[in-house]
Design a protein around this nucleic acid. Structure first.
Lengths: 161, 161
DNA sequence: CCAGCGGTGATACACTGTAACAAACCCGCG
DNA sequence: CGCGGGTTTGTTACAGTGTATCACCGCTGG
């Protein structure tokens, strides 16, 4: 099991994300186009989960409009490559700064105060879930685990301002 | 820990759901209105997760239109009373046939073949999650755990038709 | 050259959810 | 009885989320 302390400490910076994405795409023979790069930067640039329409607006400038549909396509691509995650409970997207083991379950820790999203994983949780599913006769293909609450940083800040 | 075998076996039938809802509302001094009753029946009547607009359509008849917003309000009420759950990954709703311990985590098992949703819970998973959150310095307020896959019934049916 | 393919732009549309206000209903109180 | 206040519902409008479709562009391989 590994874990992460705070969402700031563990979040890979945007330039690193881009470099990693370039490497992955080159390795897999896929195109890391300017649009995809901009979308990834937009997602990685903010510390919080971004909606597709937020991203579209952020990438748009007077004279250069980026339609949400283009953002969705780029996000689909980035998700397939494991470079961003979708937060179902928020309809929003975050960059993924980790190399997840294939099939490894991710736990999203969503701070309701600062909006930051941290990723964690736990062999305990995963093992328990596996056993539970097996007992239920259920064969999983995909699972999401999202926790909303207060991250340590926000709790401290609010506690002793 | 308790568990459930299949989504058919564990799903409380619609009439029972209504009876239980009536009892709960009486006990809590709340109104179990015809609309709320119809919405609950609609959610409980189908074996699968229902969208709010599906419910609205199902409850509408020539001359009697039920607007989605009314369905949402009824669903909000029923969720507050713990009579239905929302499946975030599907934007859909299912009846809740269990008496959940307060604060008990629920695991939703969503069959991608038949669309049925089963509920499970696991002390292992819950404990592991608690420990993981504590180590991360994260104070949870709400968490969702949804697993997509194939339920036992569908797997058997497809395996030996 | 050109046929095909992936990516993008653009428009339209479907689906999901909420805000705001008015009307109906219920219930207790004077 | 009538009246006032809370809750529920109806209605309209709108915001937010996501997809389908077609056209165009640019590249690449025959």
């Amino acid at each position: 099991m590994h874990r992460h302390e705070g969402h700031d400490a563990c979040r890979t910076a945007a330039p690193d994300m881009v470099a990693r994405a370039e490497a992955i795409c080159r390795e897999r023979g896929l195109q890391f186009t300017p649009l995809r790069r901009e979308v990834l930067e937009a997602v990685a640039g903010s510390g919080k989960a971004q909606g597709a329409y937020d991203i579209a607006e952020r990438l748009s400038a007077p004279g250069k409009r980026v339609a949400p549909v283009s953002v969705y396509r780029a996000l689909d691509f980035l998700m397939e490559q494991g470079l961003v995650h979708r937060i179902a409970s928020r309809n929003a997207f975050i960059p993924c700064g980790h190399d997840h083991a294939p099939g490894e379950g991710v736990i999203f820790l969503i701070c309701r105060t600062c909006g930051g999203v941290d990723e964690a994983s736990s062999a305990d949780v995963e093992g328990g879930l596996e056993r539970t599913l097996e007992r239920a006769g259920f064969t999983p293909t995909h699972s999401i685990l999202e926790v909303e609450g207060d991250c340590g940083a926000c709790r401290e800040r609010d506690h002793a301002p």
